[in-house]
Nucleic acid binder design. Structure first.
Lengths: 218, 218, 218, 218
DNA sequence: TATGAATGAGGATTCATTCAT
DNA sequence: TATGAATGAATCCTCATTCAT
């Protein structure tokens, strides 16, 4: 579940001190990303802001990348947890449009809490070196989505659940990020969510099933 | 129209020698991006592969970034030209779904000709430093799309043309890139194009107008 | 008191290791200036002769200039200390000519210990970029001299202490340096000091007060 | 008389075109020195401002240094001509103080016409590589001054004409430059000239001879 | 565990100078 | 003569990482 890049510290609770240091480093990194940029997030700088020495930083992280990876994993985990929660059995009763909206809004909340971080994670995700890691995550997400699609088969069109899951996920993810970064006038968060829900619902759900609720969203 | 980053060489046709050198540098850069990565595209390396000296490289480009910017502008220009062509007056007669398909396929062709380049351009586009430039391009694209939407008003739903253009464009762009980079099994180019056309058409076009042709695309 | 250009290492005594490295770098720089020239004092060269890596050099100095600045400050401090010592209260009893001679000779000793260094400091002092720093030092020196002039008012002519201090200081400084660099025949150090003392004493001191001792100096 | 560094163009009048180009280059250089700094006076920059190509620049000057040398020679010649004029036979009748004042003021006029240029020439003069050239000039100046001193022997003290000429010249030169660059408050040009005349007159001239006119100058 | 001085390969950039046109 | 594209050695500087204390 956790990364093999976070030295030693597997799941074992360890000393709270160790985890506190790790957290300080991660938060310092995010802070730099938010206030400045990826380029400024040098190991020295991160350590400085985290209030530790570079040496200590390297005691907890294999290398610089490991810090970004840890951040990535943390966000991946959050996103997956949110999705699994919303798309779990218990919510199967809800109207499809409502379920979709809960996922989209959940994602929006995650992104909004630190657009800069997600900007960087998106960049990292595009790096050749990280391809594998990111694709693995994408697969997991898509799997969750596909699972939902298959279980809601009756309300759906789209015969190919994998392709549909992929397209829907990428569209929501990228549009949301672009919107948060560009902040195009007239596209506030609610409008954005509404549009994305429309986009996904119309793409995924059978006309008769979706039609009813749509007017409220748009 | 062209970038102010390409030193001196504004519009002046110059000696063909100059343009040939610039092209060599741009092509060398793409070649490195395709075979290796952004990190490997150092000025020394680019110059070496372009068969010129670093000095020459700097004679034509303000700095390393200017090379990427030039590449960006070139792709921007191509994409815009394609879109303007497809969405121009003359094509207004075509069925909406056909028009959308032509745009999506046009974009796919562009992306497919060098996924590595578009990977890097996407990364660059996410860099804070480039925000302005990229957003400006996005605005131009969205403007073209919006123009089309407004002219095809009769067939469309979506009251807010700007928001719709933004969502549609970002969705297509990102999904296409992710697909080209991850190559998810079962999502070949034709399927991808089909899905994206579905996505966009269902999102943008009035149910009655779109319904008829859909089965062929999926 | 010390420069803000010497990284981090403010007042903290640090490990002796750190100061030793800094000294090694400064001495290496002087050595190069003496044997070669300012142009040869590249960061690589300095590090090499100091027996450290470039990285270490940059660990202690913000940039190349900071090294020269540190050298400048060190010499500034020495000169000021010498002057303050000679011109302090306790020496007010001495004959003006004797006081002047002590200052001139003190300066000569400082300059003679490394003419090459002072050549370079003079050059640096003329750089536009350093204007502020150098003027600040000049002001401090002139302030010390002016203080002395004001306290010795009875023996002096020159109504404008500031102007007089400026003229006297610049004359001594520049003539001394030129003499050390050009080594004009017939102008050995003692003659030079004698001439400068004459110059200053006759310029500053009331005719009756200065006359008596002059013959010995010339 | 002229430099052996100015290619071909010896004394021969040549085409006016050639001289015009040379002048344009020299003036462009001065302009850069005045507006910016020595570092900015690159060959490319100079050529650009002079309105010629680098190639042309190199047709007229052996190398970059030759431009500065030409500037140096030009100023040297001007200063010498001024001095020779003032100190020539015909002016021997004038009161010593008046003669000194004319020299000091003449120098001030020269310096004031381009402090930035003289700043740079002073820097260049301090470069090891230029030692010879500069010393040669100094010798010529000092020779002129010494000649005057010897001819005015009756009014002077200072037995060693060479040393006195050296000290007087360096003092005036350096103080004037420093004053023009630092512009210390309360030291306007007239005050400066007055002070320097005082300095020199009191240093060089027998008390009885100088005393009379002094009050006017101070 | 913590520290931070030291490392040094590697990258971007400059600029005087040349030479084919 | 004039041009300016091309050259490439040389320089400054960064930063991830190590290791003695």
């Amino acid at each position: 579940m956790s990364s093999r890049r976070t030295k030693s510290t597997e799941n074992k609770p360890r000393q709270a001190r160790g985890q506190a240091t790790i957290d300080a480093i991660l938060e310092a990194t995010i802070r730099i990303l938010e206030r400045e940029s990826l380029e400024h997030a040098t190991t020295t700088r991160i350590a400085e802001i985290a209030g530790v020495s570079v040496g200590t930083l390297y005691h907890h992280f294999e290398d610089r990348d490991a810090i970004l990876h840890a951040l990535q994993e943390r966000e991946f985990a959050r996103a997956l947890a949110m999705m699994q929660d919303v798309l779990s059995q218990e919510n199967l009763g809800a109207a499809p449009r409502e379920t979709v909206e809960r996922v989209v809004r959940g994602l929006a909340t995650l992104y909004e809490s630190s657009p800069a971080l997600h900007r960087v994670l998106a960049i990292e995700g595009l790096r050749v070196a990280n391809a594998e890691r990111v694709h693995a995550f994408d697969l997991r997400v898509i799997d969750v989505v596909r699972g939902f699609l298959l279980q809601s088969r009756e309300h759906l069109r789209a015969p190919d659940a994998s392709a549909a899951a992929f397209v829907a996920y990428q569209s929501v993810r990228a549009t949301m990020l672009a919107s948060l970064l560009e902040r195009p006038p007239g596209l506030d968060l609610d409008t954005l969510v509404g549009q994305l829900v429309d986009l996904v619902v119309r793409y995924l759900i059978r006309d008769d099933a979706a039609g009813a609720t749509e007017q409220r969203g748009a």
